[in-house]
């Protein structure tokens, strides 16, 4: 069983009031009832506190907490490496970025696609009107 990044546990319990007992490695944002607005908020807090850009709500929603943990650990490692070898790791740490969808007035726009994943966010909960 893999560990969960302590920041994930902290943010889920403190900000989103997810009971600690539900925070298990195989849980996903969907299974934790985190809608796309909550996931977007989660991504901002991760960015603000860890400095890691994880603004992909589709993969965050589908990913398990173990996978998100691996991404955060990888991003941190990559960033450390980037610091050590400045200018070398141009796109390291961005493997999580898939299709970033933004829902505006009921329409869906694919904002960026950096990997081959073409999954769209099926639940238009969040920015709607």
């Amino acid at each position: 069983m893999s560990e969960i990044h302590p920041k994930i546990t902290e943010v889920l319990t403190a900000t989103f009031k997810v009971p600690a007992a539900e925070i298990i490695p195989e849980a996903t944002m969907d299974s934790l009832e985190m809608d796309s607005l909550a996931v977007a908020e989660f991504a901002v807090i991760i960015k603000e506190t860890l400095g890691i850009d994880a603004d992909s709500d589709s993969l965050l929603k589908g990913a398990t907490l173990a996978e998100i943990t691996a991404f955060l650990d990888g991003a941190r490692t990559a960033r450390t490496a980037r610091t050590a070898h400045a200018g070398h790791a141009a796109h390291a740490g961005h493997t999580l970025r898939a299709v970033h969808t933004v829902h505006v007035a009921g329409t869906t726009h694919a904002v960026s696609t950096a990997s081959g994943v073409s999954e769209t966010n099926e639940a238009p909960v969040g920015v709607g009107r």
């Binding site: 900000t15 989103f16 009031k17 997810v18 934790l32 009832e33 985190m34 607005l37 909550a38 908020e41």
Partner: peptide, 10 residues
């Protein structure tokens, strides 16, 4: 805590 659930953040 008084609000309960997972939506107080919004």
């Amino acid at each position: 805590a008084a609000i309960g659930g997972r939506t107080a953040f919004r």
